[in-house]
């Protein structure tokens, strides 16, 4: 009896400390983001591209060097994903707090984002130099409006309207699939909205582009510079669609260079 009580207490303490760690890590990351944003705001008038004014360039050399160091540290040791597990070992994304948005992991073959894009939401990504593109990262609330589902063998948006990529750049929409098999799709806006925008730079089970007409998929690919998914990860997307009612076996995958 005593042993059972001790084990129970131990589990509770372990869960509490884990949750405390996550809260602390989250707060620390938010603080770093705030500091970086404030510094960037201060240097707003003197963007690193302002080469015509050497005095202005000198002024921002110091903070830029610190920001570079911060970014390099982030690339060297990226923050651990905030994942919590319940007593059955099911993983959840920690930042999704509402019970509705929590979903269990279905796919374990996940792809991380190219580290060159780290801190792109702050305009500090190495890959976006020298333009300092500030890529939008969606909150879980905003993300729900980009979720697409299969209804009656058609791909529909969150309002039930069949997806159509006709007015998107190159006639294609980009998509990502998360570890639970949820698919999100939207139009790309260069330097503003990319594959990483949906899951705020987190790992994906699949990513690519789709040509869709009235909810019917005409072409699909794993084209994503941010994630570069493997053929196996693209297969996870194809399987998920098949399970939901869209069979892509007769639609050849577009080649990716």
């Amino acid at each position: 009896m005593l042993a059972v009580l001790t084990a129970g207490a131990g589990t509770a303490v372990s869960a509490a400390s884990k949750s405390k760690y996550l809260v602390n890590a989250n707060t620390a990351l938010k603080k770093i983001a705030d500091i970086v944003k404030r510094r960037r705001f201060n240097a707003k008038q003197q963007h690193p591209l302002a080469l015509e004014n050497p005095k202005a360039q000198k002024k921002i050399d110091k903070p830029t060097a610190k920001l570079d160091e911060l970014r390099d540290n982030l690339i060297k040791s990226p923050p651990k994903p905030l994942v919590v597990t319940d007593k059955w070992g099911t993983a959840y994304r920690a930042e999704k707090k509402s019970s509705e948005s929590i979903s269990a992991s279905k796919y374990s073959n996940l792809k991380k984002m190219d580290p060159g894009y780290l801190a792109e939401e702050l305009g500090m990504a190495k890959a976006w130099e020298p333009f300092g593109a500030e890529v939008e990262y969606l909150t879980p609330e905003e993300l729900s409006k980009f979720e697409v589902k299969v209804v009656n063998h058609k791909l529909v948006d969150f309002e039930g309207v069949p997806v159509d990529s006709g007015d998107a750049n190159n006639g294609k929409v980009m998509f990502v699939m998360d570890s639970s098999g949820k698919i999100y799709a939207g139009k790309q806006r260069v330097m503003e909205f990319h594959h990483s925008s949906f899951l705020a730079g987190e790992e994906v089970a699949s990513a690519g582009e789709l040509m869709v007409f009235d909810g019917e998929i005409l072409s699909h690919s794993r084209k994503s510079g941010h994630y570069k998914p493997t053929p196996e990860q693209h297969e996870q997307f194809v399987s998920e669609l098949k399970f939901s009612g869209i069979d892509l076996s007769n639609i050849a995958e577009d080649e990716v260079e």
């Binding site: 707003k44 963007h47 591209l49 302002a50 333009f131 300092g132 750049n169 190159n170 294609k172 790309q188 806006r189 260069v190 330097m191 582009e209 084209k223």
Partner: peptide, 21 residues
Amino acid sequence: FGGSLKTLKNGSRVAAFSSST
């Protein structure tokens, strides 16, 4: 041509193309 014009904070104009031929 699939491009768009972006203006940077320093006033520079960038012709940006994404997934374009």
